[in-house]
């Protein structure tokens, strides 16, 4: 079971060249493409897709930033330039369905592209995992056991409040038979990790403490073994927070996709 399966991740261009059409386009996103920590999540999303036999492709070098950070920082020009370019590529490949590894890409593609001419069925990877679990295609067996482990889930703003996706990531955790412990501020009351609204790309304004510290203190107060995330920006902020508290040894910060992949021995 443990033999390393080779990961085959074709680009749209490669698929089309072979005369194939993918079931779904995996929108990797900038963090998922370049950030080392997020790349591991990207790998695991691909492993899950491959494991259940979904035919997928990425855009590769044809993928461009969705424009989300530009838009949230007030640069509507740059956002729409990015959006139009991406829409041209996506429409060129006649893409129908997209799964994203990032709630920010998910929100932008799903909500802000349609009025610019980009109409796709867009889901976040936690929703895909939920769907696969519901269909019985994905279980939690054959890999690392999370049974009885204390896991707390951090709601990303653009998945939770932004699009009211609260249940899908929790469903992925429920099948683990783990002990799900909620923070006081969870679901619609969830506290931001501090990275949204283009904060990821700037120093915070002066204040009493950093937002990610406030959040990780709350997460750690639930005594978790795993802090679960589903956004690469939240991942960075939470990971930094855990490091700052010197809890790296005891507490792991893992994405829903990573947990799912591990539980299935992928």
């Amino acid at each position: 079971m443990n033999e390393e399966k080779t990961l085959y991740v074709p680009t749209m261009a490669e698929m089309v060249a072979n005369g194939e059409v993918p079931d779904i386009l995996f929108w990797v996103g900038c963090a998922g493409s370049f950030d080392e920590r997020a790349q591991r999540i990207t790998h695991d999303i691909c492993k899950i897709l491959q494991h259940v036999g979904i035919k997928f492709a990425i855009l590769g070098t044809e993928e461009n930033c969705t424009g989300d950070p530009a838009k949230r920082a007030g640069n509507e020009f740059l956002f729409q330039m990015q959006a139009m370019m991406n829409i041209e590529v996506l429409n060129g490949y006649e893409v129908k369905k997209i799964v994203t590894g990032c709630p920010h890409c998910f929100n932008t593609l799903k909500n802000e592209y349609p009025s610019l001419g980009g109409n796709y069925e867009v889901i976040h990877h936690s929703q895909l995992i939920q769907q696969l679990i519901n269909e019985g295609k994905l279980k939690a067996e054959g890999g690392e056991s999370f049974k009885g482990k204390r896991i707390t889930y951090h709601d990303p703003c653009y998945l939770g409040r932004g699009n009211e996706v609260y249940e899908a990531p929790r469903k992925a955790l429920e099948v683990l038979d783990a002990q799900l412990v909620e923070m006081k501020r969870c679901r619609s009351n969830g506290l931001c990790c501090g990275a949204g609204g283009a904060q990821m790309f700037k120093e915070p304004e002066k204040g009493k403490k950093d937002i990610n510290v406030e959040r990780i203190e709350e997460a750690l107060s639930t005594n978790p073994q795993v802090v679960a995330a589903s956004c690469p920006f939240c991942m960075t902020m939470l990971q930094d927070g855990v490091k700052g508290q010197n809890k790296e040894q005891e507490v792991k910060v893992l994405d829903i996709a990573e947990i799912t992949a591990r539980a299935n021995g992928l």
Binding site: V28, C30, F34, G60, N64, L78
Partner: peptide, 25 residues
């Protein structure tokens, strides 16, 4: 923030990474 705008404009990502390296992962 201006630097982030510049990166998106020039290499299609908010960080200073080359567009050509996007699928290197």
């Amino acid at each position: 923030i201006n630097a982030m705008f510049g990166n998106i404009e020039n290499n299609g990502a908010p960080w200073k990474y080359a567009q050509a390296d996007r699928a290197n992962w």
